[in-house]
Design a protein around this nucleic acid. Structure first.
Length: 310
DNA sequence: AATTTGCCCAACCGCAGTACG
DNA sequence: TCGTACTGCGGTTGGGCAAAT
């Protein structure tokens, strides 16, 4: 039997009690043809019934998956366009791992394809981005500091009653680091809050307690993902034009990228990647946007932080 | 040239929600 | 109302393949 995909030569046959052998593994061309012709004559749906009546020795589930992800006429094959990639990125920052929901915004693309794309390209890219500490640019530091500031600010806003956070400690893997906290997300503002890491603990010295509280948008960090957050080593007061360029760029993801609106997902991979993409858009050297792992706070720690805020 | 490593992606699995008798 | 079947979703696995060693 010819195989439809590039070729795992073996397929698994599962025997059932009634002597009905259920096939698993890669689909053959014959099976594809059978499924296509059956659906052409009878339509989609009732997958279990379809599996039985079509003569395919597959589960209904398997038939459905094969049809939706591969055989359906409008399924697009091939690489994702840059527009699609950006859209995926943006939607993921909004919705998190809602692959099906995201896929609905990309005609012809399947949730499986998008999921695979995200896992292989985006996560790995974000994970392995590295920062050359001696070559970092002010721009990148600014962007990353801004992201951190936004995150902390949002966390603060999301839990106004818990804003005695100066009493709460967040373990960080590095000591003696001070992160300026800007009182607004505007341009060129001066730091009003500092997050100082001492003795492995991160204390928020809250000076600006007057910010208005907003409803909790559900910031959260997926504890299962391996993204990290960078620190900002110094105040960056002369980055106005760069930031304007950042906000004026065409990526909707720039201004509040990575911050989940509705599904409890703050995606730090997205944060890192966004920075990369922005820098690329501005034609900055790639090495300038790479991140140093030793300065990372991992996702478990961020998760802990998020829970503290709640 | 042979072996190892890592990437990519189709397919599978488990679970939750929904429909239906 | 309950139980069962069906459907859809997100996570995971495993094999092919190309690049690296």
């Amino acid at each position: 039997m010819r195989l439809a995909m590039s070729t795992p030569s073996k397929s698994i046959i599962c025997s059932r009690e009634d002597d009905y052998e259920l096939r698993r593994g890669p689909w053959s061309v014959e099976e594809d043809d059978l499924l296509i012709s059956y659906i052409a004559n009878n339509g989609e749906g009732r997958w279990n019934l379809l599996a039985i009546r079509s003569g395919l020795r597959r589960t209904g589930k398997s038939c459905r998956l094969r049809w939706l992800n591969y055989l359906k006429p409008n399924v697009k094959r091939g690489n994702l366009t840059s527009e699609e990639q950006l859209l995926i990125f943006e939607l993921h920052s909004k919705w998190g791992n809602r692959w099906s929901k995201i896929a609905h915004q990309l005609p012809g693309r399947t949730d499986n394809e998008i999921k695979n794309y995200w896992r292989t390209r985006i996560q790995k890219r974000a994970k392995y981005l590295k920062f050359e500490a001696h070559r970092k640019s002010r721009f990148v530091e600014f962007v990353k500091g801004l992201q951190m500031t936004r995150y902390l600010h949002k966390a603060q806003e999301s839990s106004p009653s818990a804003m005695s956070i100066q009493d709460q400690a967040i373990p960080l893997p590095f000591d003696g680091v001070t992160i300026p906290h800007y009182s607004s997300f505007g341009i060129g503002t001066t730091p009003t809050t500092q997050i100082t890491c001492q003795g492995g603990l991160n204390h928020l010295n809250q000076q600006d307690q007057n910010s208005e509280s907003e409803h909790n948008n559900g910031s959260c960090i997926s504890s299962s993902e391996s993204a990290n957050i960078p620190y900002m080593s110094q105040p960056l007061g002369h980055t106005t034009s760069q930031f304007q360029a950042l906000d004026n760029c065409d990526f909707g993801i720039c201004s509040y990228d990575g911050y989940s609106i509705d599904n409890n997902s703050y995606d730090m991979d997205a944060l890192n990647l966004t920075t990369t993409m922005v820098a690329e858009n501005l034609e900055l050297p790639v090495f300038d946007v790479q991140i140093s792992e030793p300065y990372f706070m991992n996702m478990d720690e961020l998760w802990q932080f998020r829970n503290i805020q709640r």
